[in-house]
């Protein structure tokens, strides 16, 4: 086990007034468990505001959880940790961001960008060694080593994402958090990046936490899947199992809302879902999906269903309890 999250919650304060008093909380993430094993890809899928990016940032230690416990290779890292452990963690957990136009500093060359983590951890003693290593990395992500002294603005979105990938794998991490790594890219380039990520996973035997709003992409990448809605895990388990046999009404809605790609079998007219996700500052008391669910029963509005089932497939819905 590389990383294990137990009962993680993240509430963001909403402040207002002269002294910025807290007037409420955005409940971005509620009681979430997550185990990431070696060379395993966990997919997280959900719509904007469902807490998937917050989860990714907590895993990458960009955000501190409000409560809950995180263990990294057996060490508790939920609170302040000593420098050496922090360093070890940083070396092993990296992140790739959604927007490759924002994730590379426009004022740095490619070699400076990829070299930044290497220098922070003092991996190489000589500039020459480091440069050779970076050239090697560029080759690995399918870029020419002539690009070393160029600047990000000279590259297309797909190429920039390759550079970001090279930076993320430069320290040979065990886990890479991929936050929507393909959604800002052109359709024709998306598949290239997905293929690259898959190849790197095989070569380096690393794990991914793969976050996306696109169910098809997440399914393609993942061994295990987490479906999130309004800060809650509503369904999780084996990717194939969930895809073939979705239990939660929301998962089903998510699957059926995707366009058909077949003009002879249009499905727009079949769509019955209405409404939008509730405000995370003020979530419904019962099941988070109860405000939009077409199958809801009385209990759903009062009581929050627990995530139940076996390791292969868990779901939080009263309808599947029976």
């Amino acid at each position: 086990m590389i990383l294990s999250l137990k009962g993680i919650k993240k509430y963001f304060p909403v402040r207002s007034g002269v002294f910025l008093q807290i007037i409420g909380w955005i409940k971005a993430l509620e009681e979430t468990d997550l185990d990431i094993g070696e060379n395993q890809t966990i997919g997280v899928v959900g719509e904007s505001g469902c807490g998937k990016t917050t989860l990714g940032k907590i895993v990458a230690r960009i955000l501190q959880p409000t409560s809950g416990k995180i263990t990294f290779e057996g060490i508790d890292i939920s609170r302040k940790i000593p420098k050496e452990i922090e360093k070890k963690f940083r070396k092993n957990v990296q992140m790739i961001f959604q927007d490759p136009f924002n994730s590379l500093d426009p004022r740095m060359t490619i070699s400076e960008i990829i070299g930044e983590p290497l220098e922070a951890h003092e991996i190489f003693s000589s500039k020459k060694e480091q440069e050779d290593y970076i050239k090697d990395l560029l080759g690995k992500v399918g870029l020419s080593s002539d690009y070393l002294s160029r600047y990000p603005h000279e590259f297309s979105g797909g190429q920039r994402q390759r550079i970001a990938i090279a930076r993320a794998i430069s320290l040979n991490p065990k886990l890479v958090v991929c936050d929507e790594p393909t959604s800002a890219l052109d359709v024709s380039v998306q598949s290239q990046i997905i293929n690259l990520l898959t190849r790197i996973r095989e070569e380096l035997r690393i794990s991914y936490l793969f976050i996306s709003h696109n169910l098809d992409v997440v399914y393609h990448m993942s061994d295990k899947l987490i479906v999130m809605y309004l800060g809650n895990t509503v369904e999780c388990g084996d990717a194939n199992e969930i895809f073939d046999n979705p239990l939660h009404p929301y998962t089903r809605v998510l699957m059926s809302s995707a366009p058909s790609w077949d003009p002879e079998n249009r499905k727009l007219h079949k769509i019955t879902l209405t409404g939008e996700p509730p405000n995370p500052m003020n979530p419904p008391p019962g099941c988070p999906f109860s405000t939009r669910c077409t199958l809801k029963i009385e209990r759903c509005e009062k009581e929050k269903p627990k995530l139940i089932g076996d390791e292969k497939h868990k779901v939080a819905c009263f309808l599947s309890e029976v």
Partner: peptide
């Protein structure tokens, strides 16, 4: 909040740097 700053953080670069 720019992602390249987050990326540097994730890479373990110090605040000062």
């Amino acid at each position: 909040e720019k992602e390249y700053v987050l990326a540097a953080k994730v890479a373990g670069v110090s605040d000062f740097k």
